[in-house]
Design a protein around this nucleic acid. Structure first.
Lengths: 345, 345
DNA sequence: TTGAAAGCGCTAACAG
DNA sequence: CTGTTAGCGCTTTCAA
């Protein structure tokens, strides 16, 4: 191990004090121009690389933010991370990314680790099971700003950037109604979760505003995997007297699976017999035939916005209150063939 | 800012020395059981959180690895990162993830930053433009292990985990030939890049081994975006006397775009008239109709394997040489409808 | 404009 | 089993 060279090594070689070297390297105005040059030249020559561990310990800043998401590889999160990383990198910050795999215990562990590493700020999209922000207190108490994004828990007064989930499903459902659909089912996720509850509410509200009676039995709550969606669809089709003419799915994966299933293995066609709508605008939704009507969550923008908010807080550290702030990102309805009305189709 | 409490605070309260506290907290065998308990209880009571900056500075280890990829949100990389993060987390390491956006300058900047943060190991999938490993020397010189994954540069003697790219396109091309295709084009990427060159070689070799003459004009090198693929396809179709019966695309995005274009806007159908094959097995390739024949790169496994290799090196730090090691991941041919032969179709 | 000196919070000899 | 002591490499008063 070639010993890393330090400011003391530089100082010795140059015959000056290490504090001067330190100042020179950080462009302090309190050091002579010639000295500065000499120091920098020597530093480059000797391949000096500042030890940020020492620097951070001293200054109690790390220029690093933590990001915690349930699953890194999910389209939504990887796009959001892209946005976060971009902003952070412009601000000169590094990003530590961890995934909780939707385990509350792991999330807690990660947060402790990040705290011990003295991150300057935290962006987190909490676990499904995260029902309160107890484990985030260590950050707030030490004036380390926290911004939640996408997911959050109720009664939280922390700052957050979220999608107008309710509005999104409202837009979709309303669109279906305008296409002439009457019997609209909703394939929901876990209704204990704030997010899926909101989406369900959007669906209900759209029905209500259009004078359509809400039928509780039209809402099927499942674990959101492709296979489960097909199973649920089969069950729905068993009641021949009660075949839906549209289904509002709470994500794209289930919607895509249902389209494939209906078109390839049943007598029902999409969209002629049953219209299908998804949620997320994943890449595949533009590829399938017919194209999947869905809603774009603008994940990159959510990441970017939450990250920008975080840096506002980081910079305001001394000036202001870290009072709760909420930004709501607007969904965008993407209309494709899977919900075309019979007339148009 | 509630001042963070330190081992000294604990020591004072308990009336013992801070070094004993330190030992107790790290479960050193050289401290009494009762003392250990007392210390730990007090630590929990007072909400003590170890300052890893100080610890790391002292031990010269950070329990952190760096990961650098061109684009975080690309399916391949986000899956690979998933694998990396999983292994790292099991090993008790944190992961700093950065994206170079395929800019060599940014990559260099990132690496300097990671070095200054004294990461314990580095996983990197270099930029297209990275032609040598000069900027990686600071790591190797300080015995910080580096593992390249997916991409690498030629003449590098660094350890790496890569896909058998050449074999992958060989398998695809061979499959097409077995399906009776004779006039097989290749839609390639930048042929200056090692990876795309390899893929092109696989295509050529398969032709050769099957006694089919290689026609230089059948290889079109483009920037790999959907739009460009369609443009290239149009150009190809202009020569009515020379319509291909199959196209080996160097990625899925271009293949998907071409299938959509051919089936929706031309007289040619996939696979009856022209068979199309992709590369990557992205989610959408299973969704499109017909399904896209492609090759799975096992990105998660590539990430996992490279990460495991890195930790081997990290642990071997004192025992052994960091000699160059290469693991080649085998591609998996995924056959779907887009290359079905006329007979079968 | 520069130097001297202290200390961030922790760990690890060494000593007892 | 526990305490003393030194120091990781840096920044930052304070003094000159």
């Amino acid at each position: 191990m070639t010993k890393n060279i330090t400011i003391h090594d530089l100082a010795k070689v140059l015959g000056i004090d290490s504090s001067t070297v330190s100042r020179a390297l950080s462009d302090s105005p309190r050091v002579g121009a010639k000295t500065k040059e000499k120091v920098k030249a020597k530093a480059k020559e000797m391949g000096y690389q500042r030890n940020l561990l020492a620097s951070n310990l001293r200054t109690n800043k790390t220029m690093t933010i933590g990001v915690v998401v349930p699953f890194i590889s999910r389209h939504f999160f990887s796009e959001a991370i892209d946005g976060i990383e971009q902003v952070a990198s412009e601000e000169g910050y590094r990003v530590i990314i961890s995934q909780s795999r939707d385990s509350f215990a792991k999330e807690k562990e990660i947060l402790d680790g990040l705290f011990m590493n003295r991150i300057d700020g935290l962006l987190i999209s909490p676990t499904q099971d995260t029902r309160d922000g107890e484990h985030l207190n260590q950050f707030s108490q030490n004036k380390i700003p926290v911004v939640l994004f996408d997911r959050f828990y109720e009664n939280s007064n922390m700052s957050k950037v979220v999608l107008a989930d309710r509005k999104a499903t409202y837009m979709i459902t309303d669109h279906l109604i305008k296409q002439g659909k009457k019997k609209i089912f909703h394939l929901a996720g876990d209704l204990e979760s704030t997010m899926y509850k909101e989406r369900c509410t959007g669906y209900k509200n759209a029905l209500f505003d259009n004078g359509i009676k809400y039928e509780k039995s039209y809402v099927k709550s499942i674990e959101l995997y492709a296979d489960n969606a097909v199973v649920a669809m089969k069950e729905i089709l068993e009641d021949k007297n009660n075949i839906p003419d549209a289904i509002v799915c709470v994500n794209d994966v289930t919607a895509l699976a249902i389209i494939k299933y209906l078109n390839e293995s049943t007598e029902y066609n999409v969209p002629e017999d049953i219209a299908i709508a998804g949620f997320s605008n994943e890449p595949a939704s533009a590829i399938i035939t017919p194209g999947l009507t869905t809603v774009d969550q603008h994940p990159f923008e959510i990441g970017k916005t939450s990250s920008e908010m975080l840096f506002e807080f980081i910079k305001d550290k001394y000036s202001g209150d870290l009072s709760s702030k909420t930004v709501v990102i607007q969904p965008e309805l993407i209309i494709r063939g899977s919900t075309a009305s019979k007339v148009i189709a």
